[in-house]
């Protein structure tokens, strides 16, 4: 993988944010099982990677990430930064038991915060916009956060169904 051209503000910003966000996540009380935790984190990393691959790679090339238009080491680090934010998004959704129209408001507020955080990233030169703008990201966040919530609900239901089936099997074998 390609190394950064210059180790400057964008790399330091990413390192500091990674340390801060993961510290917050691991210090918070655990609300969901490890398997769901891994899936929620992976999901956000996958969505970010996929959208960057489709929107920022050559022939579309709407923005660059970090120092080059190529896939460098700190692009990989950037993806790691999405995971704790995705967990926090799910954590507060679950913690405050958000339901009904509250879900729409929650997604709108989080998308707005996401957009502000992306603008901060752009300020530290993590993103270099060409034909893109942080405002466009707002609609992307609306879609990606809705997908994340939908899939989290699906994952949680599937998890409990599998758990119930295993318990039934276990009880059946003990009879």
């Amino acid at each position: 993988m390609i190394l950064p051209v210059q180790f400057d503000q964008n790399e330091w910003f990413l390192i500091v944010m990674i340390i801060l966000s993961y510290t917050v996540v691991f210090l918070m009380p655990k609300r969901i099982p490890w398997s769901q935790f891994i899936l929620v984190m992976l999901l956000s990393v996958m969505i970010a990677r996929l959208s960057d691959h489709l929107l920022a790679s050559p022939s579309v090339d709407l923005y660059d990430i970090n120092d080059t238009g190529k896939y460098d080491l700190f692009d990989f680090v950037t993806y790691l930064l999405y995971a704790p934010f995705s967990y926090l998004f799910i954590y507060f959704y679950d913690r405050f038991n958000i339901r009904g129209i509250g879900i729409v408001l929650y997604i709108v507020v989080c998308s707005f915060l996401g957009m502000l955080f992306e603008m901060t990233n752009a300020l530290f030169e993590v993103f270099h916009y060409k034909g893109w703008s942080a405002v466009y990201s707002f609609s992307v966040y609306l879609v990606s956060q809705s997908i994340t919530l939908l899939l989290f609900s699906y994952i949680r239901t599937a998890y409990h169904t599998l758990l119930r089936n295993q318990n039934k099997k276990w009880q059946g074998s003990n009879l």
Binding site: S35, I38, L39, L42, L43, V45, M46, R49, L50, Y79, L151, I155, A158, Y159, L162
Partner: peptide, 15 residues
């Protein structure tokens, strides 16, 4: 593979 394993696989493979 169960549904959780398949979601895991999909995310990892896409990345």
């Amino acid at each position: 593979c169960n549904v959780l394993e398949n979601i895991f696989l999909f995310c990892v493979l896409e990345f």
